[in-house]
Simulated assay, not measured.
Amino acid sequence: MAAPLPPVPVDNRSASAARNRLLPEGRVAGPMPWVIAIMMFLTVLAAAAGLGLGAGVRAMGADLAGRATVQIVEADQLARDRLAVSVAGALRGMPDVRRAMPVDQRALADQLRPWLGDEAVSRDLPVPALIDVDLTPGNADAKVAALRGVLGKISTKARIEPHAAFLQPLSALLASLGWLAVGLVLLMAVATAAVVVLAARAALDSHRGTIDVLHLMGATDVQIARLFQRRIALDALLGGVAGFCAAMLVILALGGRLEATGSDLLRVIGLPWAAWGLLLLLPVGGVLLAMLAARLTILRALSRAL
Rank of each mutant, 00 (worst) to 15 (best):
D141C: 11
L147E: 02
A172D: 15
P126T: 03
R304E: 13
V127C: 01
I36V: 15
L278C: 07
L51I: 10
G255W: 01
P102S: 03
L237I: 07
N139G: 02
L282G: 00
A172E: 15
R159V: 10
M40E: 06
A253D: 09
N20T: 11
L296D: 09
G61V: 06
L289H: 00
P283N: 08
V197W: 08
N12Q: 14
Q111F: 12
P31I: 15
A59M: 10
E74K: 01
G183W: 06
A305D: 08
R201G: 03
A100R: 07
R92G: 02
I38M: 12
P4V: 08
G277E: 05
G240F: 09
T69Y: 05
A172L: 13
V185C: 03
L125Q: 10
L288W: 14
G262E: 01
I72W: 01
L42Q: 06
P126Q: 02
D118L: 06
E25R: 13
G117D: 00
L167C: 07
V250W: 03
L204C: 03
S176L: 09
V144C: 07
I131E: 00
Q71S: 14
V73R: 14
R267A: 11
V197Y: 01
I38R: 00
L147C: 09
V222H: 14
M60C: 05
A191E: 03
G152Y: 12
L198Y: 05
V73A: 08
A247W: 14
T210V: 15
